[in-house]
Design a binder for these strands. Structure first.
Length: 502
RNA sequence: GACUUCGUAGCUCAGCUGGUAGAGCAAAAGACUCUUAAUCUUUGGGUCGUGAGUUCGAUCCUCACCGGGGUCACCA
């Protein structure tokens, strides 16, 4: 690997630092008793508390001016200006620490610790007057420099997605709003977790490697266990395992699950993604709809203290209750066609009229799903529950209590996209076996994503699962909505990419 | 997987109907003890993504490949 001019210079500085007897990567802890945000917020009110502070961070800007210098230090909470005066840090005859170490050997990107006191400069900037500093880490690779002018306009912002996603650490250092998106992601997850825990629901963990990939229709990743000498699949969902736990007697379980689907990647799909699934016994999908809207409203409040969230050009409002419409009514509303009583052939004609490609492997359920996706889905900007799907596209869902041919299922649409999927869970083991067998027929027709029979799951249902409602929500997509991020890559720290060549 | 578009200094970007490249920041040397996109003087830094072809000559045109983005397909 050939080094650039600047990398060579920094390595040379590293040697000079060592030659001066300074360890560029010291082992000693550096005691920190302050942070940038706290100082900027509270110094004016509480000046006495900031006479003797110790703070550490990365140097982002250097403004040397002869025998004094200003610099900006970035810590986990923000940035603060420091003021380094030669005769202050070098009170004696030996001015090496300032003239050589600080002015010549310290670079943008280096991590230092400083001790001193807070003051306000003549031009009104709260700053740290440094009395001593310690090099904590020498950086040997030049950091992209983004400068912000007095009007707050950033210059030379690094927007190159390749650099941002491959070197997320750099993205996080130089683009402060990126950190915030990920902090908000964690707030969302914590908000959800608190919501469930307050209700006494149990957070659990279930297998990621599964012998039969079930609970969803998707192509799985396959791996191999050497000792057992069997194929194992990375889970596409954890639904069937959580339901086994309901059979086992837990009355409410949930899991934030990493799921894996071996399919295309785009702005809304990453091969590994996070899904929250929850199952609550003795409830139905009507109850689950209410819980879902309550939970999402709370998440918005926890994030922004309002139910209104800007997302692209749309102002979303998560104020309860959300609108509800059945999938057939929705199709009727947006196409003028009543598909509720149609046969497979009639549905295929509707698809062709809407210029939807019809494949032989498509059954009734798939056709209705295609019609809805094409003609209706994008209309639902404000949160809307779509309810009562055809039985053919919902093999794990209980048949509707009053509408023949339908199941008790809802999906929540927001900003024209599906955000969650939920239903009254099918707990009739005989019916469940028949549904699996129908899925096998789809497999024979060429549908390589249809579900496989899970005999152990059926055995569990035979022991009896109480009436249960379950719901799954895409955490990445929820975070995209809530943080106004147009790409899933902006809400996953390390999105999947083709390996880089070095 | 298909189509489309992009790849020039550490970073952000110019450039050329084809004559082997410029700026700002960053870097180096010097000046400067309240700067804040600090300023001033000087200097260095590039096999123009990789490979092939066309041409007297390619960063520019053609093809292939590598990597990224977008649209579509598949899906959540």
């Amino acid at each position: 690997m050939e080094l650039s001019e600047q990398e060579l210079v920094r390595r040379k500085k590293l040697e000079e630092i060592k030659a001066l007897g300074i360890d560029p990567y010291p082992a000693d802890l550096f005691e920190v008793n302050a942070n940038s945000a706290d100082i900027l917020e509270n110094y004016e009110r509480n000046k006495l508390d900031y006479k003797n502070i110790s703070i550490a961070g990365r140097i982002m800007v250097l403004r040397p001016m002869g025998n004094a210098a200003f610099a900006e230090l970035q810590d986990a909470r923000g940035r603060i200006q420091i003021y380094v005066k030669r005769d202050e840090i070098c009170p004696g005859e030996d001015k090496t620490m300032y003239n050589t170490v600080f002015k010549k050997l310290i670079d943008i990107g280096d991590i230092i610790g400083v001790k001193g006191f807070v003051f306000t400069t003549n031009s009104g900037t709260i700053s740290i007057h440094v009395t001593s500093f310690t090099l904590l880490t020498k950086s040997v690779r030049p950091l992209p420099v983004v400068k912000v002018d007095s009007e707050g306009v950033a210059h030379d912002v690094v927007t190159d997605p390749e650099l941002r996603y491959r070197q997320r650490y750099v993205d996080l250092i130089i683009n402060p709003e990126v950190r915030n998106v990920f902090v908000q992601r964690t707030i969302i997850i914590n908000s959800m977790r608190n919501f469930f825990n307050e209700r006494g629901y149990l957070e659990v963990e279930t297998p990621i490697m599964q012998p039969i990939p079930g609970g969803a229709t998707a192509r799985p990743f396959i791996t191999h266990h050497n000792t057992l000498d069997i194929p194992l699949y990375l889970r596409i969902a954890n639904e069937l395992y959580l339901k086994r736990l309901i059979v086992g007697g837990f009355d409410a379980v949930y899991e934030f699950a990493k799921d894996f689907r071996n399919e295309g990647m785009d702005r809304t799909h990453n091969p590994e993604f996070t899904m929250m699934e929850i199952y609550v016994a003795y409830k139905d999908y009507e109850w689950m709809m209410q819980m879902t809207e309550e939970m999402i409203e709370k998440i918005a409040m926890d994030l922004y203290n309002t139910t209104k969230v800007q997302c692209g050009d749309n102002m979303l409002d998560f104020h309860r209750p959300f609108k509800r419409i059945s999938i057939y009514d929705s199709i009727k509303e947006h196409t003028g066609v009543d598909v509720s009583g149609m046969t497979e052939e009639e549905l295929k004609k509707v698809c062709r009229d809407l210029k939807i490609e019809v494949l032989p492997s498509m059954g009734r359920g798939k056709l209705v799903d295609e019609i809805f996706s094409t003609a209706c889905e994008h209309h639902y900007i404000q949160p809307t529950f779509i309810t009562d799907y055809p039985v053919e596209m919902s093999p794990l869902t209980k048949k509707h209590r009053s509408k023949p041919g339908l199941v008790e299922r809802f999906e929540l649409m927001v900003n024209g996209k599906e955000l969650c999927n939920a239903y009254s869970e099918l707990n009739d083991p005989i019916d469940q076996r028949a549904r699996f067998e129908d899925q096998m027929k789809l497999v024979e027709k060429g549908d390589d994503e249809a579900m496989l029979i899970d005999n152990d799951f059926l055995r569990a249902l035979e022991y009896g699962m109480p009436p249960t409602s379950g719901m799954g929500m895409g955490i990445d997509r929820l975070t995209m909505l809530m943080t106004n991020s147009p790409s899933i890559q902006d809400v996953i720290f390390f999105p999947q990419m083709r390996p880089e060549k070095f």
